[in-house]
Structure formats: structure tokens, C-alpha cells
């Protein structure tokens, strides 16, 4: 397939460009992912958690803060990549004309888009690992499963980066990103087993939640954090890999269509 064969190692040059920009302002970039989970854990975990007591999850009874913690890691992975590959990529593409400048060099448009999505996934990896660090320090994730969480943070980031890039290829202007955020990201934020276990939903609601990508990221991260593994995790992993593959290729094809005239 020519789309994929047009991706080369040079896409890493785009990744490095974004990394260089990110690390010139690293102090401001690293503070929010560090403080945000602390706020959530204090307000919801401690404050709100007192009203709830223990939560049952897969036969395990855990404090609400402990239930919430993996959800925060998964949410961070989703938002980081989705913001980066919607607003971030759109600004570089449309306002800064960075993509135009790069495709006049030996890089192909496929290299550029692949590099952008890899960078989005990297931001998910960085931010979700910082959140994980806070969670571990608070004693809310267990060794050794939690060591694999950053990997899921990256993979889930690549999935959300690819989905985001599809919207970036399609929106007529930057304000249109309100729609995917309102119709897709916010429902996922709330209904993916992040704030409450899915089994409290009616059966149809549970099936709906299974369609949402974040449900699978959250399940994997939570099960790793609790050292619980089952065949459901294999399905969730397959779901993420498959959806990532499909959306990654689709995003590149649509971006090519938008940019190469």
C-alpha cells in the first residue's frame, strides 16, 4: 500500500521538531499533568470518596480514590493526544504552514502526519506517566503491573492521536473541534469506567460503553494497576491495536487528500 510505503524513518524528524518545541517550554508543560491528578484525587478521591466507601470491581473491594486513580491515568492519555493532534496539529498545518515547509524537503506528507501522531502518542506517554507517578506515590497502584501502564498510555495515545488526526483532516475551521470534544471526548471522559464501575449501568448502557475506546484503555490500565488479568484484557488490547491501525491509516489518507492538491 503506497500510503504506508511513503512513511519512512524521516517521520522521526517531525517528531523531533515537536519534541524540541515542547522541551524549550518544558516547565510549563510538565506542571499541569502533575498537579491536575492531585486535585482530582484530593477532591474526588478523598472528599467525594467519603460518601461512597468501598467500590466493588471484579470481585475486589477498593477505596474510591483507588478506583478513580487508573481512570485519571487513562483520561490523561486520551486528552494529551487528542488535544495535540487536533488543536496542535491544526495550528501547525493551517496557521503556521509548518507542514507545507516540511514537505518541500525530502519528507513526504505521510512522514509528516505519522510523525505528528507519534508525537501525540508520546505526549500521552509523558503525561500519563506523570499521573501514574502521582498515583504510585499516593499508594494507589501496585507493583509489578503498574510498570506496564506507560506502555498502554502510549498505545492508547496513538489511538487517540489517530482519531484526532481524522478530525483535523475533516474540520473546516478550528472552532469545529468543539463537536468531537462535546460529542465524543466528554462522553468518554464520563462513561468509560473512569469515575464509576460500568456494571452499575443497565445492560444496554454497558454495551454502549464497550464501544468507546477509552473504556478499553481504562480497563487495561486499571487491571495492570491492580495486578488483575483476564481474557477481557486481551480483547481490550486487541480492540486498541485494531482501532489504532484502522484510524492511523485513515488519518493519513484523509490528510493526504486535504493537503495534496
Amino acid at each position: 500500500m503506497s500510503l504506508l510505503s511513503n512513511i519512512s524513518r524521516r517521520s522521526l524528524m517531525v517528531w523531533r521538531r515537536n519534541k524540541d518545541v515542547f522541551f524549550t517550554t518544558w516547565k510549563t508543560n510538565f506542571l499541569p499533568p502533575f498537579f491536575e491528578p492531585i486535585l482530582y484525587l484530593v477532591a474526588m478521591g478523598l472528599g467525594f470518596g467519603i460518601l461512597i466507601g468501598k467500590v466493588e470491581y471484579e470481585g475486589l473491594f477498593v477505596e474510591y480514590a483507588m478506583f478513580l486513580a487508573p481512570g485519571l491515568v487513562a483520561i490523561s492519555s486520551m486528552y494529551s493526544a487528542f488535544f495535540e493532534c487536533t488543536y496542535g496539529s491544526y495550528v501547525r498545518m493551517h496557521y503556521q504552514k509548518t507542514f507545507d515547509a516540511i514537505i518541500a524537503t525530502p519528507l513526504s506528507i505521510e512522514d509528516v502526519i505519522a510523525g505528528e501522531m507519534l508525537w501525540g502518542a508520546t505526549k500521552s506517554f509523558l503525561n500519563s506517566t506523570i499521573v501514574l507517578g502521582v498515583v504510585v506515590i499516593a499508594g494507589l497502584a501496585w507493583f509489578p503491573g503498574m510498570l506496564f501502564v506507560p506502555f498502554i498510555g502510549f498505545l492508547s495515545g496513538l489511538m487517540f492521536a489517530s482519531i484526532a488526526m481524522i478530525f483535523t483532516a475533516l474540520v473546516p475551521n478550528i472552532d469545529s473541534f468543539n463537536y468531537p470534544f462535546f460529542l465524543l471526548i466528554t462522553p468518554m471522559f464520563l462513561f468509560s469506567g473512569t469515575f464509576f464501575p460500568l456494571n452499575v449501568l443497565p445492560e444496554w448502557g454497558q454495551w454502549m460503553a464497550e464501544i468507546l475506546p477509552l473504556t478499553h484503555s481504562t480497563r487495561l490500565i486499571r487491571d495492570l494497576s491492580y495486578n488483575l488479568f483476564s481474557w477481557v484484557d486481551v480483547i481490550s488490547l486487541l480492540y486498541i491495536v485494531l482501532l489504532t491501525a484502522i484510524t492511523f491509516v485513515t488519518a493519513i489518507a484523509l490528510m493526504r487528500k486535504r493537503l495534496i492538491k
Binding site: R17, D20, V21, T24, Q96, K97, T98, A101
Partner: peptide, 8 residues
């Protein structure tokens, strides 16, 4: 068009 990289 000016497409210098404003981030650098």
C-alpha cells in the same frame, strides 16, 4: 507564503 517556524 511565509512558512518559517514561529516556534523557533
Amino acid at each position: 507564503e511565509n512558512n518559517l517556524d514561529p516556534d523557533f
